[in-house]
C-alpha cells in the first residue's frame, strides 16, 4: 500500500500534478465529445432535409 501512497503523493507536489493531468483529460475529452455531438447533430439535420430513405423504402414509412 505504501507504494501506491508514495505514487499518489508525488513527492509532495500532488496538489499540482494531479490537477494538471486532470484538466488535460477533462478538456480533451470534452472537446472530443462536443465534436462528436456536432457531427451527429449535423448528420441528423442533413438527413431530415435530404432523406435518402425515401427512395429506398417508398413513401409513408418515415419514422
Amino acid at each position: 500500500m505504501s507504494g501506491m501512497e508514495t505514487f499518489l503523493e508525488m513527492g509532495g507536489h500532488a496538489g499540482y500534478i494531479w490537477p494538471a493531468y486532470g484538466i488535460v483529460a477533462l478538456v480533451l475529452a470534452g472537446l472530443w465529445l462536443a465534436s462528436r455531438r456536432f457531427v451527429r447533430a449535423s448528420n441528423a439535420e442533413l438527413e431530415d432535409l435530404n432523406p435518402r430513405a425515401r427512395r429506398k423504402r417508398g413513401s409513408g414509412d418515415e419514422a
Binding site: 472537446l31 472530443w32 465534436s35 456536432f38 457531427v39 447533430a41 449535423s42 448528420n43 442533413l46 435530404n50
Partner: peptide, 24 residues
C-alpha cells in the same frame, strides 16, 4: 494523432453544415 482524429470529425460536421446551408 488526437488532433487529426478530432479535426476529421469536425471537418465532416463543417461539410454537413455547408450542405445544409445550400439546401436551405
Amino acid at each position: 494523432a488526437y488532433f487529426v482524429w478530432v479535426l476529421l470529425m469536425r471537418m465532416r460536421g463543417e461539410i454537413n453544415a455547408m450542405k445544409i446551408r445550400a439546401v436551405r
